[in-house]
């Protein structure tokens, strides 16, 4: 007897959810809870991935970005709640790769991310940017990046209205949307990289 792949996947995912949530039930430490929440997000994505259509993929992308942004907000609340205001001391020593690699790796990722555009490109480029900021301890102009991403958001809303009300200009809409979402996701996420040091120029 052959189990259909979907049923197998569903059983595995729900079993995983039960195990994961049992761990949350038993957990008493708040930071551990944040970590376990990340685990739960992965299991939710499994459930979506099992649908196995293009639509499923289009649903995973928002799901991912929702997960990371909520994680960001909650971890910041945690820091505020515990009063962990002091930025961490610098690492005692640095590995060599952290001096040589960031520039080239970040460049590759950002360039490739721009080629990809959209959500995927934004995330890939953001990984590059985060890595760069992490290694170089950069303090960026916070307001500037936020303003940029705010405008990007507005551009995307414009693109959405093009699709809804002027569908004939779809090409324009695709370009605007791809570019704006790339910019928005990348800007927002690379802010994470600059927030580490705790300084704000």
């Amino acid at each position: 007897m052959a189990i259909p792949p979907y049923t197998l996947g569903l059983l595995v995912a729900v079993a995983g959810l039960i195990i994961g949530f049992m761990a949350i039930v038993r957990e008493r430490d708040d930071l551990h809870r944040i970590l376990l929440t990340d685990l739960a997000e992965v299991l939710a994505l499994v459930l979506i991935a099992l649908v196995a259509t293009d639509l499923a993929e289009a649903l995973i992308l928002p799901g991912l970005v929702v997960g990371i942004s909520e994680l960001m907000a909650v971890s910041e609340v945690y820091i505020a709640k515990e009063g962990l205001r002091k930025p961490p001391a610098k690492p005692a020593f640095r590995i060599e790769i952290m001096d040589s690699a960031p520039g080239i790796l970040a460049l590759i990722l950002v360039a490739y991310g721009i080629v990809l555009s959209g959500f995927t490109g934004g995330v890939v480029a953001a990984v590059g940017a985060v890595f760069y900021f992490m290694c170089r301890d950069h303090a960026e102009r916070f307001e500037l990046i936020e303003t940029v991403s705010g405008y990007a958001w507005a551009i995307w809303i414009g693109a959405f209205f093009i699709f809804m009300f002027l569908p004939g200009y779809w090409l324009f809409g695709v370009m605007m949307a791809g570019g704006a979402i790339l910019l928005k996701v990348m800007a927002k996420m690379s802010l994470v990289g600059t927030m580490r040091g705790g300084s704000n120029v």
Partner: peptide, 23 residues
């Protein structure tokens, strides 16, 4: 290619804390 680039980055990020704990 992309995955092989990003996974090591993730590892390096994790190494940041490992290093700290060792100290």
């Amino acid at each position: 290619i992309l995955v092989s680039l990003i996974i090591p980055i993730t590892t390096i990020i994790i190494l940041q804390v490992c290093r700290k704990e060792k100290r």
